[in-house]
Design a protein around this nucleic acid. Structure first.
Lengths: 348, 348
DNA sequence: TTGAAAGCGATACCAG
DNA sequence: CTGGTATCGCTTTCAA
């Protein structure tokens, strides 16, 4: 049942009259009795020009009185460039790890005097999306996931973006790349399980949309790590709810799996609980390993073994962006930025 | 230890030459052999004017050849308004609930032809921040949390924002408000615990910064629900790590608490595990209740009792925004938008 | 020390 | 049907 918003009756609303028009620097100039140029000089503290103290005061007072706020679009139009770093808002559900990363990044870019803008470009696909980003004339674009093609990169560069950085599984021609090597996550998990004697290995693949670009390489990583061994790999579709987990667990013994890599800790916890409820002994009958090293994984019993992922520091990425902006001609850099390492606990 | 980005050696980079200048509609006009006006008509499908088919083709071809992308800032400068809905990126860590809400909202506003932009204004405080938002001349501003004062609202309105909506614990003069009544969450939890005979009630208060604006009202809600009863309320500071939880649990018996409301499910899970490790029986010795109704709370044993929060639908909020934009003179609406209800499981 | 004016890119009015 | 042109708000050169 959908929750319905309930309006609270209002005390006689003053309904503050909408100001007829937004004050411009011309209004400030008029009120202060100076020219627009002078206003600009004063408000921007232009050092190339000296303005008398009385004039400065008059301008500042006029600006305050009118509630003047400069118009960013007009300014950057005139300047011919902006310091906006655009980031399409990720369409997939992000975990705390990624959220922390974004926050850091915003902070660090802020320190370098960039302005970070997350753009909600829902509904547009690939090059369409790139076009709509280009309309904002950002100085740099940071694209998470794998939605950008070489064509999109060209569009962005042609429209003045001095740096295009992708943050995903593969690098794109012409753009800097932060390679999130999700295959390494799968390899890491698989190697661990194999080393501990497991041979019939299941891999959970979330059914939630938007996660394929992570789950597919993780699965492929498992496959590649086990290639040439006697171990088998079984794909296990799983939705993020208890029913789906129960269904999977109910027929567990039929599959004869002795280990499972569960995509991440959340799916791992879900599945582990369902298996335990079915009487499967963990890690005796089946080993379970997750990924992301969530705090909560340590709370289950047995404590969950996991693959710890280390994202690049926001600072490093901010510096990469800044470097690229300053030297747009430079060769695209490609960095591997997923430190994957097993944290062995009790579930494997 | 900080993970260091490793650069991968590049094959001889073609270092695509930066295009000398960004194509404008004038360039398109020149190439197509028409005037800028005609270009504008063609590319915007202006219906008030008929352009011959051959001309249209020439314009489209020229635009494609040059990779022309219109300049959003110039356009909105000329138009005198934009359809940008600005949302300061929340500074607090957001859960899956909130993330889903934002996604929905973006989608729904997109359907109404608005463009949602999350603005990373880290480091600025209150009215400073409002000023920097106003520079972007958004048509509407959606402010999560409690960082906006009446003064900020005025600044935004003066600079042309036709709707200002706050999404937080209290309403602000002049702005529409979506009241997230976190006190209700605390009241809900406290009432439940009290009804089940608990009298010495602890309330977890996270030590992580940025959460005060949620935790304080939740605590106050507990207090107000128990006012006039014999029950006592004890504040329990807790950081989100196992050590902190263990420390708290170690001295649990001294406190003689028979119930705890743990801020949310994550803190509840953390604390519950620590208590169990100390031999505290749940719910026998101490009842535990969380909030947010996370999937993972159902995985612990005993299953975690929680307060389910229902956020408004993105669609409702999108419609509120649209309504406000169309009728900026209308009285500010105030809606209560947190449906809080106890989900009773086994930990209480 | 201050002011006049050009121009950033796109659009819409009014003539032709 | 198409082209000139004024205009949005701001910065910055050049003159005064």
């Amino acid at each position: 049942m959908r929750y319905v918003m309930v309006q609270i009756p209002k005390t006689p609303a003053p309904a503050s009259p909408v100001p007829r028009s937004v004050p411009t620097s011309a209004d400030v100039a008029r009120l202060a009795g100076v020219s627009r140029a002078t206003v600009s000089y004063v408000l921007n503290n232009t050092s190339a020009v000296r303005i008398s103290e009385p004039t400065r005061r008059r301008v500042h007072e006029a600006a305050k009185e009118l509630g003047y706020v400069p118009h960013a679009a007009a300014r950057s139009l005139r300047a011919g460039h902006s310091r906006m770093v655009l980031m399409p808002a990720p369409s997939f559900p992000v975990g705390p790890l990624y959220h922390q990363f974004i926050s850091d990044l915003q902070w660090e870019l802020g320190r370098l005097d960039y302005t970070v803008v997350q753009y909600g470009a829902v509904g547009l696909q690939g090059d369409e999306a790139a076009r709509s980003w280009a309309e904002l004339r950002p100085v740099a674009v940071l694209v998470p996931g794998s939605g950008l093609g070489p064509k999109g990169v060209t569009v962005l560069k042609r429209s003045g973006a001095r740096a295009v950085v992708t943050l995903g599984p593969e690098s794109v021609e012409g753009a800097h790349a932060l390679l999130m090597d999700h295959e390494a996550v799968g390899r890491c998990a698989a190697t661990h399980l194999h080393a501990r004697g497991r041979r019939r290995i299941g891999v959970v693949v979330p059914q939630e949309p938007g996660l394929e670009s992570f789950s597919a390489p993780r699965l492929e990583g498992v496959r590649s790590a086990l290639r040439g061994t006697a171990a088998t790999v079984t794909e296990l579709p799983l939705a993020y709810d208890e029913m789906s987990a129960a269904r999977l667990a109910a027929r567990w013994s039929e599959r004869g799996l002795d280990a499972v890599f569960a995509y991440n800790d959340e799916y791992a916890m879900l599945l582990m609980r369902a298996l335990q409820d079915e009487g499967v002994d963990i890690p005796g009958d089946t080993a379970v390993i997750g990924a992301d090293d969530l705090m909560l994984g340590r709370l289950l019993r047995p404590r969950l073994t996991t693959v710890n992922l280390e994202l690049p520091s926001g600072r490093d990425l901010a510096e990469l962006v800044d470097r690229a902006v300053r030297d747009p001609g430079g060769a695209p850099e490609t960095h591997k930025v997923l430190g994957a390492s097993v944290v062995h606990r009790d579930s494997s």
